[in-house]
Each structure stands twice: as structure tokens, then as C-alpha cells.
Design a binder for these strands. Structure first.
Lengths: 210, 210
DNA sequence: CAATGTGAATTCTTTCACAGCC
DNA sequence: GGCTGTGAAAGAATTCACATTG
């Protein structure tokens, strides 16, 4: 479910505030979804709430983490050490819940050999080596569009199981690999549509699973 | 439609290659969607293909641009001049088809006054002024999570019609404003789910319009 | 003949509404 | 009384299949 990370973050906040119990209505409102939708989402994780009371925050948080398979170590390799690669490497979302940016690769000689926030930048040609050495199953593409296809294939050949691609344009998934394409420019282009019509609304991006 | 920008990019590529005609099957395959889905998407723009032949690339491209209201000038203001703000300000997706990053704002004294790729970085307090001066209707939030709510409200107060929020956590839309929340960390967390189960597939992110 | 555009069917998602439990 | 979990209804999105058109 694409909404689980959203719930996870809210639970993190509640937990930090020592809130012990939360109802589906409260959590749903904070997440910007319908309460019934939230309850159905959570019911997929097994029975996790108590009727009349609500959800136990630490327990629910743990169940969400288990569903997302967080909690174990998830070393990530990012291809592309430009501004986007830097931003992702330093972001909390890529370095929490077991996720951890283990290495960056690039082809720019000025970048290769530098260290970003404690993470070394290696050459793209070392990708296979790095993936094996760090036991990496997740790759991220933050390169220009024309390099994306090649990089995804390299990730796949190295044995990565899933790739998050930020380069614009559709990249097909090599067999055995899940590829998720996120086009930041496209997100903005969709907004021009709404701004032109000016029909106010709230959206949460996240592709349908399948 | 969230897929129109995807089609737009493919048409751009075909146009550059001087391809004059394309069939729904070809275009759908390149975009990673079903041909019937593509045809229905395009039929919303009005009749634009010729049976027996296919779609005229330049003409279709123009129709997609019109549907997305591209072609006119879309000045964008980005809040947050960290690595992500830099990446977005320089990206082609934010600077094509009429879209144009006109200004950046930050609160860091080290950033304010600098120039990024020809775009000046001003102080957050000048946001209202900048939005009016550039006639901005689109805002982008690339700040830390704790600042996002405040910045969105500032954008709204300044009269922006739509905001793209990259800060994690749901930000509710002030009345009259469309807010699109994109959480890059969440995209990666969803991939852990697939990597753990290792069921290969391709996904294209993009929230359902609502 | 080849390929669009679209009713009809299918599938997926969201929401309602309420039985059951605390 | 309040709230969860879920069957059933409603609503969207996708896909099929074909009449229609160049």
C-alpha cells in the first residue's frame, strides 16, 4: 500500500509526543484520507486496533514497519551525485527505518573520490562491486535522462531487486526487478492543469500498486 | 490526467526524431500503459487521431500542451534553496514548456543573496513580494518538514493557486489552493515492500486526480 | 486493411453502514 | 457509548471488443 509510509510518519510523530492511543478518525484526518479507507488499509496488516478504544500507537507503528519490511537493514546505492543525488543522500526519508544510503556513484571525475555527508562517491564502473559488497537490494537513479536506461540495466545485472528512477521518461523493468518511475517535472506539469482551472483540492502522489 | 506529461515527453522525443505519425500501440508501449488506456486518455482532448493511420505527432503534441495549459508562461517560485531546491531549479522539467523557475527563497543568510543558475535567492520574507512581481501562480516547497505548513500558508496568502510540496508529511490545502504532496522518502519505502517480496513489476507514480 | 474512438464489461478502489466488541 | 473491522454499495479506472472511418 502506497499510503503506509504516510501513516508511518504520523505514528512516529505521535510516538515522539508520547501519545499512546489514536482513533482511525484522528489518524485519517492527519493523513488527509477517509477514515474507512485508513481502517481498511490497516486491516490488511492483521487485527491491530481495539474497538471502543482505537489503535495502540507503538504497536501499530511496529506492525506498519513490519509490513513495509523496515526494521531490517536496507543499504541503498544512488547513481548520480548531482544536486538531486546529494539531496536524497542527506534526506531523512532515505536514512531512517533501516534505510541507509551506503554509496553514491557518478561518472564526473570531479565528483568521484569526494565524500558526501560521510558517504563516498565512487565511479559508475564500480557499481557492481559496491552492490555486492554492501549487499544492496535497492537502487536509486538520479542521473540525467539519457543515462537512466543504462544505469537501471547495470543495477539489474548487479542483482538489485528494486530501482527508484527519478530520471524523466519511462524505464522498463528488466526481468526480476521492480522499477518505480517518479518524474518530478511531471508532478509540476500536472499542477499547471489545476492552476489553469483553479479547482482547489489536495492530492497525495503515489502510484497504484501493480 | 496524470499521464499526459508522460505522453508529452515521448512526443517531444518523437518530434525531435522527425517522426510524423505514431500509433496508439507504439506510444502506449513506450509509456508503459495499455493501448486502450492511452486512446481513452487522448480522446478526452477531443478527436485527435485518424483511423487507419494513427496520431499526427506535432498536432498531438500541441493538443497535449494545450490540455496541460503549457505554452503560456508559468513562473515558479521555489521555497528552500538546499540541494533539492537547487536540483529542481536547474532541472529541465521545471524549465520547459512555459514553466520557468523565476525565484528561490530561503531563510539561511548564507544562501540569501546568492544566484543559482541565473536565479536569485531571496529571503522568505520577500515571498509575497516576489509572487506578485512575477505574477506567480505555482509554488514549490523544498524545505525541511517543520517549515512546510508555514510556507504553504505564505504561498496561499500571496495568491498562489497551486503548490507542489516535497516536504514529508501531509499539508492541508488552504481554501482556493491545490496542494500536491510528494514524499520522496515514501517512494523508497514502498520499494522495500516490493524488494522484500521480490515480485517484479513496473510502476509509474502519480496520484489519482481528485 | 489498419487503427481510432467508444459502448460495455471488468477490475480495482473508495466509501457507506452496521454488527460486534470493549 | 465509542470505535474497529468488514460485507455490501458506489464509484473510478482500466481493459475488451468492435463498429466506424480513412
Amino acid at each position: 500500500m502506497a499510503r503506509l509510509p504516510q501513516y508511518r510518519r504520523l505514528l512516529e510523530v505521535l510516538d515522539a509526543r508520547k501519545v499512546v492511543t489514536v482513533s482511525s478518525v484522528e489518524l485519517a484526518e492527519a493523513a488527509g484520507v477517509n477514515a474507512a479507507t485508513l481502517r481498511r488499509d490497516l486491516s490488511c496488516l492483521g487485527t491491530c486496533g481495539t474497538p471502543g478504544t482505537g489503535y495502540d500507537v507503538p504497536r501499530l507503528r511496529e506492525m506498519v514497519d513490519r509490513a513495509l519490511a523496515l526494521g531490517r537493514d536496507w543499504p541503498v546505492v544512488i547513481a548520480g551525485a548531482g544536486y538531486l543525488g546529494h539531496a536524497l543522500a542527506r534526506s531523512r526519508g532515505f536514512n531512517s527505518g533501516g534505510l541507509r544510503v551506503a554509496a553514491l556513484v557518478d561518472i564526473d571525475p570531479l565528483q568521484v573520490g569526494t565524500v558526501v555527508d560521510g558517504i563516498p562517491v565512487s565511479h559508475l564502473d564500480d557499481l557492481d562491486d559496491l552492490v555486492h559488497r554492501h549487499r544492496t537490494t535497492l537502487g536509486v537513479v538520479a542521473t540525467p535522462a539519457n543515462a537512466a536506461g543504462d544505469v537501471v540495466r547495470r543495477f539489474a545485472a548487479a542483482g538489485v531487486r528494486a530501482v527508484l528512477n527519478f530520471a524523466p521518461g519511462f524505464v522498463a523493468a528488466p526481468s526480476g526487478v521492480t522499477v518505480r518511475n517518479v518524474d518530478l517535472g511531471a508532478e509540476l506539469q500536472v499542477l499547471t492543469f489545476y492552476a489553469a482551472r483553479s479547482a482547489p483540492s489536495v492530492e497525495v502522489a503515489g502510484g497504484p500498486p501493480g
